[in-house]
Simulated assay, not measured.
Amino acid sequence: MRISAILLLSLFLLGSCNQHKKRVIAVIPKATSHVFWVAVEKGAKDAGKAFNVEIEWNGAASETDFSRQIQIVDSMINRRVDGLALAATERKALVASVDRAMKQGIPVTIFDSGLDTDNYTSYVATNNFEGGQFAARAMAKLIGGKGKVAMVMHVPGSVSTSDRERGFEDVIKREFPDIKIVASNFGMSDRAKSRAVAENFLTANPDLAGIFGSTEPSSVGASLAVKARGLAGKVKVVAFDASESLVEDLKSGAVQAIVVQDPYKMGYETVRTLVDKLDGKTPAKRLDLPAKVIFSEDANKPENKLLLSPELK
């Protein structure tokens, strides 16, 4: 009798513990080191605290290592996490993993960069096509609506950055007939490679008026190349995404404009969509977050400081 009572008490306590166990949401970025992803992590973890869920943050070291990202996603699915958030490094490679998660009843929110599928719970991202359009209009303003420009692109297969690049091309071709995009190439998410690409642009086009970098590494590479040639201020640089060095260049005039996102809000809203789904609500299928252009002369405005240095949040 005594043994039966102890057994019943143990089962009751075990059930009670399981009822109060925190739900786990895995958040998997493209990479972990860049300040953009650090700010996404902060937003996600603050949302975790606000909504009483545990955030499991894990990502590859490099944005080009999609095989490692697949391994991380699959391990989270095998662990049966309650929800999964993913910023896909490649638009096709992660589709099968996301399909598997959804089939097993694990809701998936895609954030920052999309996939070639609609089989997900929600999609939270900056309107990157619009951001690229903003960059093009900023460039046109800076070079007086005419001249030769080039693009240091990110990597093949990345939805978010290819949208920016398409947006830039779209506006230049439609709205500014006197501006010609004379060169474009991938910097492969690497500052040194992006600098080499920009150096080649400058060598081949000594009359180049401007360079657009569609990501932080692309933009840093472009800035380094321009400064090394003594062309800071003469060849205009429009960047996408901020970092400490780019903000310094913005203030010094080596970079004339930066298109910024709100990665903290992206991380927070991504977690919110999954919590809503787990609570039986229906989150929006798509949530677009606006981008903003910040010119050199506006860098010190209070409303821009947190966007330029999102890690401060």
Rank of each mutant, 00 (worst) to 15 (best):
I3V: 10
N18E: 10
H20W: 04
R23Y: 04
V24F: 11
I25Q: 01
I25V: 04
P29S: 04
T32N: 04
S33F: 06
F36M: 09
W37K: 09
W37D: 06
D46I: 13
G48K: 04
F51Y: 07
E54P: 03
W57C: 04
G59C: 15
A60T: 04
A61Q: 14
R68D: 11
Q69I: 07
V73N: 03
D74Y: 13
N78A: 15
R80K: 15
L84N: 01
L84H: 01
A88Y: 05
A93C: 03
A93I: 02
L94M: 11
A96M: 11
V98Q: 00
K103A: 10
G105V: 13
L115D: 10
D118H: 06
Y120A: 03
A125N: 04
F129K: 12
Q133A: 14
A135F: 00
A135H: 02
R137L: 08
M139A: 11
A140R: 04
L142D: 05
G144M: 06
K146R: 14
V149T: 11
H154V: 07
G157H: 00
S158G: 00
S158N: 04
E169V: 08
E169C: 08
I172W: 12
K173W: 02
E175V: 07
F176R: 00
N185L: 14
N185K: 12
G187P: 09
R191D: 06
R195F: 06
V197C: 05
N200A: 14
N200H: 14
A204Y: 08
N205K: 09
N205L: 06
D207G: 02
F212G: 06
G213Y: 08
S218L: 06
A222N: 01
L224C: 00
V226R: 00
K227Q: 12
A232H: 07
G233N: 01
A239Y: 05
V247F: 13
V247N: 15
L250Y: 05
A254N: 00
V255N: 03
V255W: 02
A257T: 12
V260T: 04
M266H: 05
R272V: 09
L274W: 06
L274M: 13
T282M: 03
P283N: 05
V293I: 12
I294F: 11
E297S: 14
A299D: 15
N300E: 13
K301W: 11
E303P: 01
K313I: 14
K313N: 14
